[in-house]
Nucleic acid binder design. Sequence first.
DNA 1: TGACCATGCGACAAATTGTCGCACCTAGCC
DNA 2: GGCTAGGTGCGACAATTTGTCGCATGGTCA
Lengths: 178, 178
Amino acid sequence: MDHATVIIIDDDASYRRVLQRRLAQKTSFEILAFASTQAALAEQTATPCHGIILDMMLSDESGLDAITRLNHHFSPAHLIMLTGYASIATTVEAMRRGATDYLAKPIELNALIQRLMPEQTYHSDVEEQTTLTPAQLEWEHIQRTLLAHQGNISATAKTLGMHRRTLQRKLQKLSPRR
Amino acid sequence: MDHATVIIIDDDASYRRVLQRRLAQKTSFEILAFASTQAALAEQTATPCHGIILDMMLSDESGLDAITRLNHHFSPAHLIMLTGYASIATTVEAMRRGATDYLAKPIELNALIQRLMPEQTYHSDVEEQTTLTPAQLEWEHIQRTLLAHQGNISATAKTLGMHRRTLQRKLQKLSPRR
DNA sequence: TGACCATGCGACAAATTGTCGCACCTAGCC
DNA sequence: GGCTAGGTGCGACAATTTGTCGCATGGTCA
């Protein structure tokens, strides 16, 4: 039995529970799961924290903003961002703030575990690279602009020359990646 | 006049030259441009290196492998990866190896400069006027891809994941103007 | 409290894309 | 020549996406 913990933070209750159960099955970590950063930070941890799996789109705040605090509080060996809305821009931002990894949902459990315990195997497979589709390129551009405007949708839509309603709709869809 | 240099490494000669000229125009850095990492490393630098702009797909090696050596040799304040084949996985890998930024081509000059000198700017007014619309970016991207396929419309449409009929129609329209 | 702004979202018209099909052209080959 | 295999241009119609308007909610500031 391992005495280290892995913390999951995701506001999607079913996703969180499934992940918790399956990680507990396949690893020897103690898996704690929370719906918010606050809840996680309130936790008194006796055991060291091996990893944190953090959703990007929390209902009450951006996962980006949580990175620093979580790192500070738990000093995990791995801080893995997880999101269905992945983009280069947010990846860069997350890594700068101290994330150690960034994965796009849906992710296979084994891939996640491998990122959590890279000591075993893990050859950094730099995946197949294809030229971007216009949709992907647009997504990246939108994400970059959005970040430059601190997430302000109205302002972003204006500078992109796009209707706010359209931008909203595009953002609701998942990342066009893959 | 600034005494710091910015180094461009890209094996595409025309892209490299255009970038060099335009950066020299818009900033006060001394801009050096090389086709390979070796050529850059051979350079004797008297002035400090402010930034390195590194293409991911060099003909003789992966830009990823160059990151560590370049950082070691030049200790730039910014090491910006540039690629036409962006993916989350390579972004993560590049950031881990010491890149400070990662951008997908085509990228606007102003966006690049902003990443090079984040201290300045956030004059939102300047930025608002120079941000390309998604349609403009797409146009650039289509033109690049078309060139890469020697003008073959069918092949271009396929790699862009776009219907040939749609590409035809886009090409019939004029370049989206600002 | 009121003015202001950002946001989420429904609804319907306008515009763009996907799809199928067909004719024409060129190059390579038996 | 006749055959085949792409590539191209374009019409037509359905499917999807965007533009536009409107309204309700929630936060901020004075």
